[in-house]
Measured scan of single mutants.
Amino acid sequence: EEERTFTNEEEARKAKKEAEKRGLRVTVTKDGTTWRVRIG
């Protein structure tokens, strides 16, 4: 499991799409101005 943080919503969405392409489970949460993308 890996967690990545982004300040840019577009980049967070891109990371989510890429992980889904690899067949991984992805959770995206917004924490104030930060987007957290949890993969795995």
Rank of each mutant, 00 (worst) to 15 (best):
1 E>P: 11
2 E>F: 14
2 E>T: 13
2 E>I: 14
2 E>W: 15
3 E>A: 05
3 E>T: 10
3 E>N: 06
4 R>D: 04
4 R>T: 08
4 R>N: 05
4 R>F: 15
4 R>W: 15
4 R>H: 13
5 T>Y: 12
5 T>D: 05
5 T>V: 14
5 T>M: 11
5 T>G: 03
6 F>L: 02
6 F>A: 01
6 F>T: 02
6 F>S: 00
8 N>L: 06
8 N>F: 05
9 E>D: 03
9 E>A: 09
10 E>L: 11
11 E>T: 04
11 E>C: 08
11 E>M: 06
12 A>M: 11
13 R>M: 15
13 R>K: 11
14 K>R: 12
14 K>H: 11
14 K>D: 10
15 A>M: 08
15 A>H: 08
16 K>I: 15
16 K>S: 11
16 K>E: 13
16 K>Y: 12
17 K>E: 15
18 E>V: 05
18 E>F: 06
18 E>D: 11
18 E>Q: 08
18 E>W: 11
19 A>Y: 13
19 A>F: 11
19 A>D: 02
19 A>R: 01
20 E>L: 07
20 E>D: 04
20 E>A: 05
20 E>G: 03
21 K>I: 10
21 K>L: 13
22 R>W: 08
22 R>A: 11
22 R>D: 05
22 R>Q: 11
23 G>L: 02
23 G>H: 04
23 G>E: 01
24 L>T: 02
24 L>Y: 10
24 L>P: 00
24 L>N: 04
25 R>T: 11
26 V>K: 00
27 T>P: 00
27 T>I: 10
27 T>M: 07
28 V>M: 14
28 V>K: 00
28 V>F: 05
28 V>D: 00
29 T>K: 05
29 T>R: 07
29 T>Q: 07
29 T>E: 09
29 T>H: 09
30 K>L: 11
30 K>D: 05
31 D>S: 08
31 D>V: 12
31 D>C: 07
31 D>R: 05
31 D>N: 07
32 G>N: 04
32 G>Y: 02
32 G>M: 02
33 T>N: 14
33 T>S: 12
33 T>M: 11
33 T>H: 12
33 T>F: 11
34 T>N: 10
34 T>P: 01
34 T>I: 14
34 T>F: 12
34 T>E: 09
35 W>A: 01
35 W>R: 01
35 W>N: 01
35 W>T: 02
36 R>S: 06
36 R>L: 13
36 R>P: 03
36 R>G: 02
37 V>F: 03
37 V>C: 06
38 R>I: 15
38 R>H: 13
38 R>N: 10
39 I>M: 06
39 I>N: 01
39 I>K: 01
40 G>A: 13
40 G>I: 15
